[in-house]
Amino acid sequence: MDPITILAPLALLIIGSAVGSGKIINEGNQALVERLGQFHRKLEPGLNFIIPFVDSIVVEETTRERVLDIEPQEAITRDNVSLIADAVLYWQIFDLKKAYYAIDDIENALKNLVLTRLRTEVGQMELEQTFSARKEINQAMLAELDDVTDAWGVKVTRVEVLDIMPVQTVLESMEQERAAEIKKRASILEAEGAAEYMNRISQALRSQANSKEVLQFYLAQRFVDANYRLGESPNSKILFMDPKAMSEALGELMGTETDVPNGSNGSNGNK
């Protein structure tokens, strides 16, 4: 048999094995090699050689920082208010061997860990605290996550709570409470304004010689105006009111001076 015929397949096999044994790892990545089913070594960026059919690359991952978005989740505050909170996690692998062999699904594990810590932090606060304590929540979560993920070969570089928002039913309740508070304040201000208005009228009338007559005229006018407006209302009612009783009531605010003309000392004029 021709030697060339024998050596040609052997040469092709050697060349093929040499080509197949060369593995290029891109910058920013690492790879793990197993030999006969056991961890053998880690491949760094650049050209690496492995033994065909004996060695196998089981994983190649980036060691650059990555972002993991945490979908909005429900949490309950210490005062039993339901909130919706979401966050974003920045992380990177510093030990690929641990990240591959110590945990099955690293991203899912990180996501569940963030959700657990987020609910725990929110549950320690009351509703009003959560609106201003976002920085404290971030710092507390980062410290907890960093401790746990170290065993996974992962470094959590930053965690940010993006939004904390009460659920729709809580928002509606808060709006109703705010509207009731505004209405209550308006009623108080209106009552205070009316009292101040009556007090000024009383002070002005005290300086008039015919204060009682002016008061009676004013109250009668107001009485007629009020009845006119009641008559225009679709839910109008008939209202009977004694203007004299109204004038006497306001006269008590003014004091007995309303019955005494200016310049009089209250006597019958006898000296």
Rank of each mutant, 00 (worst) to 15 (best):
M1L: 06
A8Q: 14
P9F: 13
L10V: 10
A11W: 10
I15S: 08
I25F: 11
I25V: 15
N26L: 15
E27Q: 11
N29P: 06
Q30T: 01
L32P: 07
V33Q: 04
V33G: 02
R35H: 06
R41A: 10
L43C: 10
L47T: 09
N48I: 04
I51F: 13
P52Y: 02
I57F: 08
I57W: 07
T63S: 02
R64S: 12
R66S: 05
P72A: 07
Q73Y: 05
A75P: 05
I84W: 01
W91M: 10
F94L: 03
D95P: 02
D95C: 01
K97A: 05
D104N: 01
I106W: 08
A109K: 09
L113I: 14
V114K: 01
V114W: 01
T116N: 11
R119L: 13
R119E: 14
E121V: 13
E126F: 04
E126D: 04
E126Q: 08
E126N: 09
T130F: 09
F131D: 02
R134T: 15
K135A: 12
I137A: 00
N138W: 07
M141V: 07
M141Y: 11
M141H: 09
L142I: 03
D146Q: 15
D146M: 10
T149M: 14
D150T: 11
D150K: 09
A151F: 01
T157D: 06
R158Y: 13
R158C: 11
E160T: 13
V161L: 11
V161R: 00
L162H: 06
L171S: 10
L171N: 10
M174G: 01
M174P: 01
E175Q: 12
A179M: 12
A180W: 06
E181A: 15
E181N: 15
I182G: 08
K183V: 13
A186T: 10
E190R: 14
A191R: 08
Y197D: 02
M198R: 13
N199H: 13
Q203A: 13
R206N: 12
E213R: 05
V214N: 08
Q216A: 06
F217S: 08
A220Y: 02
Q221Y: 09
R222D: 01
F223I: 00
D225H: 00
A226S: 04
R229K: 09
G231A: 14
E232R: 09
N235W: 11
N235P: 05
S236Y: 10
K237N: 08
M241N: 00
E248Y: 05
M254K: 09
S264T: 06
N265S: 12
N265M: 09
N265P: 01
N270Q: 14
N270K: 13
